[in-house]
């Protein structure tokens, strides 16, 4: 257990950070064209906890996640996963992309999508065994979708689609889960189901990082926040970093003062 200094907005807090943070990002800059979407960002994710990435639209939340996963190439900076380069640790990361990123009319069933999570184990020519199917079904049951296994994915509601994506990630049996807006546009039942699964992942000692939109539920759902608007604004446990000032700095004029006050009161 090494001691590392994590600094947030002026205050330097000496907090123990495990030597092998599940996800450590240093000086990351990503740019589409000439305008950086993420500029010189440091991030240290704490193991076995849940962290929310928060910021306004276009603040670079998804980009940060995609750069951490090697989906977009950074201009500069390093990403380390459990203390080693990303390429060596692919098997330990599971990614849940935004629901809108795929075509749901694609000819595939729910169970087939979950089986994609077992891609690495199956290999190129390996046969699908009963044990594989059983595991995929188990993951579906975990998100409450067991009876939908044989449905075409286009017949699902938005919330159900999101749960299928989560089940696919569960099938990977990873140590670090990265989710891009898992609660965006889903029904209340789905939100409940997803947060229950994420908390059970945490209980198993796994690490969860999610891009999150709903400021009202941050305190209830997450242990840590990472506030970003192109650059990092604040990072740390909810109680310390999720403050009215930090939110004002993140959202600027876009967050009404009344909203900030309300949140600040809720935080007390």
């Amino acid at each position: 257990m090494a001691l590392e200094l994590a600094s947030t907005k002026g205050t330097t807090l000496a907090r123990p950070v495990p030597a092998e943070s599940p996800l450590a990002i240093r000086g990351l800059t990503v740019s589409y064209g000439q305008k950086p979407a993420v500029f010189s960002v440091d991030m240290t994710v704490r193991a076995g906890e849940m962290t929310a990435i928060i910021g306004p639209n276009g603040a670079g939340k998804s980009t940060l996640l995609k750069a951490a996963l090697g989906i977009v190439a950074p201009l500069s900076g390093q990403v380390q996963v459990f203390g080693r380069p990303l390429a060596a640790q692919r098997a330990r990361i599971a990614y849940v992309p935004q629901r809108a990123s795929v075509d749901w009319d694609f000819p595939t069933r729910v169970i087939d999508v979950v089986m994609m999570g077992l891609y690495r184990e199956l290999g190129l020519l390996g046969r699908v065994r009963k044990s594989h199917l059983a595991r995929a079904e188990e993951c579906l049951a975990r998100v409450g979708m067991a009876e939908f296994a044989d449905r075409q994915i286009g017949q699902l509601s938005g919330g159900q689609q999101q749960r299928v994506f989560l089940a696919r990630a569960l099938a990977q049996d990873a140590d670090l889960y990265l989710l891009d807006e898992p609660f965006a546009g889903v029904d209340a039942a789905t939100e409940k189901a997803i947060i229950a699964v994420l908390k059970s992942l945490r209980a198993e000692g796994r690490t969860v990082v999610a891009v999150h939109h709903d400021l009202a539920t941050v305190t209830e759902y997450f242990d840590n926040v990472f506030l970003i608007n192109t650059t990092k604004i604040a990072e740390g446990p909810v109680a310390e970093a999720f403050t009215a000032e930090a939110l004002q700095a993140t959202y600027g004029g876009r967050l009404a003062t009344a909203q900030v006050d309300q949140l600040a009161r809720a935080l007390v």
């Binding site: 995609k66 996963l69 090697g70 989906i71 390429a87 692919r90 990361i93 990614y95 992309p97 990123s101 795929v102 075509d103 694609f106 595939t108 999508v113 994609m116 891609y119 690495r120 199956l122 190129l124 020519l125 696919r168 990265l178």
Partner: peptide, 23 residues
């Protein structure tokens, strides 16, 4: 096609997820 059917299907359905898995 027989050898590449899995990665080709994965890439066709969800290229970003495929990339995240190192495909």
């Amino acid at each position: 096609i027989l050898a590449l059917r899995r990665p080709m299907t994965l890439v066709a359905f969800d290229p970003e997820y495929a990339m995240a898995r190192g495909v």
